[in-house]
């Protein structure tokens, strides 16, 4: 039976969507699964801990079309401190925009890292509308895709999955804008104030 380490590479890991996705993954995993956040200070420690695992699942958001810089820093430390027995690396990336395809470049970066450093690539999932989907009626779509991911990791089948909300872009735009307007209201901001063209002034 495999042993899976899930590492959350979100800069806001304790309160992140990635954490919620990891929790769903754990619900559908039967073997031993350990979850940890990647923090600024624990990179070495996490690299050392990897020796005890057959699988590593990296869960993180898309930031500026690529890996969040904290993930990049962690991967550099991992490259310099490889475990003796390398786990299979599986990947779950979520992005805010509707199109899961926007995660592709970040996935390719991870694939390049794995190839260069001799890690076998496991299962992969790209989620679009990742900021919102869990709190909508489309939650089941995210859950279903994560269940498939968990199964693929357990079976070592290295599948790639993708999912997003099945909405026309216009409707997504409308719903997202309503979400952000309400978000701003909590801080006493009107939509107009949030739309200010001013930057630092």
């Amino acid at each position: 039976m495999g042993k899976i380490l899930i590492l959350n590479g979100s800069p806001r890991a304790p309160k992140s969507n990635s954490k919620r996705y990891a929790e769903i993954f754990m619900r559908y995993s039967s073997g031993e699964v350990v979850y940890q956040n990647i923090t600024r200070k624990n990179h070495q420690e996490l690299c050392a801990a990897l020796n005890g695992y057959t699988d590593l699942l990296l869960v993180f958001p898309l930031y500026a079309d690529a890996l969040p810089v904290g993930m990049l820093q962690f991967l550099k430390v991992l490259e310099a401190n490889p475990p003796q027995r390398k786990p299979v690396i599986s990947i779950l990336i979520n992005c805010g925009f509707l199109e899961y395809e926007q995660n592709k470049v970040a996935m390719q970066m991870m694939e390049l890292f794995c190839r260069r450093n001799g890690y076998r690539l496991g299962a992969r999932l790209m989620l679009g509308s990742g900021e919102a989907i869990l709190d909508t009626p489309f939650r089941f779509i995210a859950v279903r895709s994560i269940r498939k991911l968990a199964r693929s990791v357990a079976q070592g089948t290295c599948q790639t999955y993708c999912a997003t909300m099945p909405l026309p872009k216009k409707i997504f735009q409308w719903a997202a804008n309503r979400y952000w307007t309400n978000y701003g209201k909590r801080f006493g901001m009107t939509k107009k104030q949030m739309q200010t063209p001013d930057i630092e002034s």
């Binding site: 969040p68 978000y183 200010t196 930057i199």
Partner: peptide, 16 residues
């Protein structure tokens, strides 16, 4: 410093 993903620059202090 690294962005902490708080979205304050969109929702609390827009543009800052």
């Amino acid at each position: 410093a690294n962005c902490v993903g708080c979205f304050g620059c969109w929702t609390k202090t827009p543009g800052r």
